[in-house]
Design a protein around this nucleic acid. Structure first.
Lengths: 342, 342
DNA sequence: CTGAAAGCGCTTACAG
DNA sequence: CTGAAAGCGCTTACAG
């Protein structure tokens, strides 16, 4: 592998000039620049990341911390982040928390100290006080996706608004008996999304003078199977079943659709179902939903974080502690319709 | 952030001793070791990755290259790799190829040159001649998952055997009219898996003296929707529909199950369906399948690659060009049964 | 515009 | 067992 010395020799200039010519920041004569570029191309030279980092203190590398990578939402957001980062010449180092508390501690208190990344993007992870402090000591900027983090810049979806929008859609179709299945968060991290979505659902009902019957509310664990069982329970009630369901994730909504079918109910003629996410498979299921624009959330987070690290002031990020909220957008497919006349 | 100098001062020793004490490799007196460890803990010191890399030439970082991260197989394998890597103190840098040819070139010919990783794991990616050569120049060991790569160590699933096993299961139940839906690979990378799976299917039929009717064969694009349509076509044939289907992925098998149901066919009473993968949702669908042990494939790949980089000989990996094959394992659930008596 | 040299923060022969 | 010093491969004031 060629080093800067080789390029300098071949181009007949000093290593300083090579560095300047290639970085493009400093003034170099057009002639020197051309020679250096030719030499670099010939030798297939790229500056070594570790030497660059050691000299500049910048790594052109972003750490991404998420609780899982093998769930739809997380994998899509990861892909969005990665594609944007590569575009801008940044690497992505992945830290996933699924290994439990030990792994989490290791990441925050050991890997982080290695100064390998310029910044972190956390996805649906709420750092503890200790962890936040650790980040502060390390002086690493952090961008939180999904929920405010004290002292950090944050981007999230307007969860309450999304829950309200989904519910209003059902109300506008004429439904009055509307149920809701929310998601139970995994333990260690904090998804408060599900609660907020239900909040929006309750708000919408209230605004229309409707009420939520207790037996119309359920929880499931964000899996298709969990929602299947919950839905059977809700819709199986012969006396007081809801005619429409707002479900906190599309994957759970798939389970709900199958449960309805297995009960002999037609979707949407007998029961309307709306989810949230706009999952890849939602089109296939004909599922109406609130889109989160997940991939775009990812690429936006990447852009924001790059902006953050490239505009440090005295080593500190500018404009921290700022929470931006994205609206969800309603997508109407074939799983929602007017209620059956009773 | 504390540096090695700070630790040395606090412990009252030289930086050389700090380095030795912390790496644990060289002889250091118990007393010095204790003092250094105490100081390091107090200052929350971890060696800077870039300085370590520059000094040693090792990065403790593995690059993972995959065509997508937002598909089930890839996200699960990624999670398997990551968890194992963290365990061993390695970082993971993700390169995903979904951005197209440009992104791919950038990764292979620019990012790779930065010498940021000790080795690569490629997943279902077949490097071109150019790319392979680039890897060779860089002297970076590479472990290929899914399909042999010339000059590299490789781990893959015995695809032919898996196809045969699935088909033999159907044959052993008494089926004689067995169809197959294989997957069409995306363009740029090379999945030859689908062909191999069909190969195994054909082998099994032949060995039992059965033949594959042309109209029992179809292809789909690995999506639930694609397989849904293909299955309707296959099973809709009123004269010569197969009584069982081997489908090249579980996700496609879900589409097949739904297609069968929508045709009024019961699974497995009217038609048996077996997939391949053992997807997270397969349990829910009651899908019989051939498990690939995906998560385990990932963690195994991580172990192998660590072994590779920690046992270089003169900078070269030992035992290259070695292809290991894993067997798939049959998982029987409720989607396969004896054929209906005609 | 350009080069010589210091410095980034480690590790590791070398000498003792 | 331990320390002084060289060196890893870059970038960037500094001087010209």
């Amino acid at each position: 592998m060629a080093g800067i010395e080789d390029v300098a020799k071949l181009a007949g200039v000093s290593t300083a000039t090579v560095s300047r010519a290639l970085s493009g920041k400093n003034s170099v004569s057009a002639k020197a620049k051309a020679k250096v570029e030719a030499a670099a191309r010939e030798l297939n030279y790229t500056a070594s990341a570790s030497a660059y980092t050691l000299a500049t203190g910048r790594s052109r590398n972003i750490g991404v911390v998420m609780p899982f990578v093998d769930r739809w939402f997380f994998s899509v957001i990861l892909e969005g982040i990665e594609t944007e980062l590569i575009e801008h010449g940044y690497d992505l180092t992945l830290y996933n928390l699924s290994g439990g508390a030990d792994q989490r501690r290791k990441i925050f208190f050991e890997f982080l100290n290695r100064k390998r990344v310029d910044a972190f993007i956390t996805v649906a992870v709420k750092p503890s006080e200790d962890e936040l402090q650790q980040l502060a000591i390390a002086g690493i900027p952090i961008l939180g996706l999904g929920g405010p983090i004290s002292g950090a810049r944050t981007v999230s979806v307007d969860e309450i608004g999304a829950g309200r929008l989904a519910t209003e859609h059902l109300i506008s179709l004429g439904h009055t008996k509307i149920g809701n299945i929310s998601g139970t968060p995994a333990s260690e991290m904090e998804f408060h999304q599900p609660n907020l979505r239900r909040q929006g659902y309750l708000d919408a009902l209230k605004a229309s003078g409707l009420t939520a019957h207790d037996s119309w509310l359920a929880e499931a664990d964000f899996t298709i199977a969990g929602a299947y069982h919950a839905t059977k329970q809700l819709l199986g009630d012969p006396r007081n079943a809801p005619s429409a369901l707002f479900i906190a994730s599309d994957e759970m909504a798939f389970g709900a659709i199958m449960a309805a079918k297995d009960l002999g109910l037609r979707v949407p003629q007998d029961v309307s179902i709306i989810g949230m996410d706009d999952h890849d498979m939602s089109e296939f299921f004909g599922l109406s939903t609130i889109s989160q624009n997940v991939r775009q959330q990812g690429s936006n987070a990447a852009k924001t974080v790059i902006d953050l690290v490239e505009n440090l002031k005295d080593g500190q990020p500018v404009n921290v502690e700022q929470n931006r909220e994205w609206p969800g957008t309603l997508i109407v497919r074939s799983s929602t319709a007017r209620p059956p006349r009773s």
